[in-house]
């Protein structure tokens, strides 16, 4: 069974085309800029079986065309990798595109099996500097980088994603370093810059927890352009979301 936080039937930001997005309950990172703080706790959410989700996929099939499909996001998807293996295996068997949105923090045999039935990985590498990564996410970036390297080795298609937060993740030297680190990865189909936004702020209020970035500004057009210019030096296909 999967522990599901919520479902978005018209996902347009979690992989190519129109996606059925399953937001999983539970996360092992504590990103300062988290816009889904309600998905953090391992408790809560709704139990759903793979079959139930497959049914939803079938209902949505006419909308997928050649590009769309299933995306599992979070929370952190890999916390439920065993259950996801079952879901992705069934989805793939029926011809649905399977996309995994993850922070890449867990790489074990179960993850590896899951990746065999995953068409595309959306990998968030939240900071290239270990110290800053720790600050931003309360976790080390070392497992994530190892995960990325593994995807390169098995030549798994991936989109690298980067949340741009003024004062936290927009330091030019680290953006350069980030680009340089991944520039030779042939399995990267695109890089996406996700400018920090405030859409999730209301959730902090609802949950009654402190929002550490409540005073943080959203990036200016100029800041976004600067990051874009840097990344474009290293990658062919960079998008701003």
């Amino acid at each position: 069974m999967l522990q599901v936080h919520s479902i978005e039937t018209f996902g347009t930001h979690e992989g190519p085309g129109i996606r059925l997005v399953i937001f999983m309950q539970g996360c092992n990172f504590r990103c300062l800029y988290c816009h889904n703080p309600d998905t953090r706790s391992l408790k809560g959410g709704t139990k759903m079986s793979s079959e139930e989700i497959i049914e939803l996929l079938k209902k949505q099939k006419p909308y997928f065309k050649d590009t769309g499909g299933l995306t599992v996001s979070g929370g952190e998807s890999l916390l439920q990798r065993k259950a996801l293996l079952d879901l992705f295996t069934k989805a793939k068997k029926l011809g649905f595109n399977t996309t995994l949105d993850t922070n890449g923090s867990i790489l074990d045999d179960d993850t590896k099996k899951l990746l065999e039935v995953t068409d595309l990985v959306l990998l968030d590498v939240k900071h290239i500097d270990p110290v800053w990564h720790q600050t931003v996410t309360s976790a080390s970036n070392e497992p994530t980088l190892r995960f990325a390297k593994y995807l390169k080795e098995i030549n798994k298609s991936m989109w690298l994603r980067y949340v741009l937060v003024p004062g936290y993740t927009n330091q030019k030297e680290f953006l350069e370093k980030w680009g340089a680190h991944f520039k030779d990865y042939k399995n990267i189909d695109r890089v996406e810059i996700l400018p920090f936004h405030t859409y999730g702020f209301y959730k902090y209020k609802e949950l009654g927890i402190e929002n550490p970035l409540s005073d943080c500004p959203v990036p200016t057009e100029k800041e976004i352009q600067e990051a874009l210019t840097i990344f474009e030096k290293y990658f062919k296909s960079v998008y701003v979301r």
Binding site: F10, T12, H13, G17, I18, Y63, F64, T67
Partner: peptide
């Protein structure tokens, strides 16, 4: 924004949405 990030994505997704809805 909810249709997609770029104008191109928005257009493609809206076409797919209408196609899908009418297919139903």
């Amino acid at each position: 924004r909810a249709l997609g990030a770029t104008k191109e994505e928005q257009t493609d997704n809206l076409v797919a949405l209408i196609d899908g809805y009418f297919h139903k």
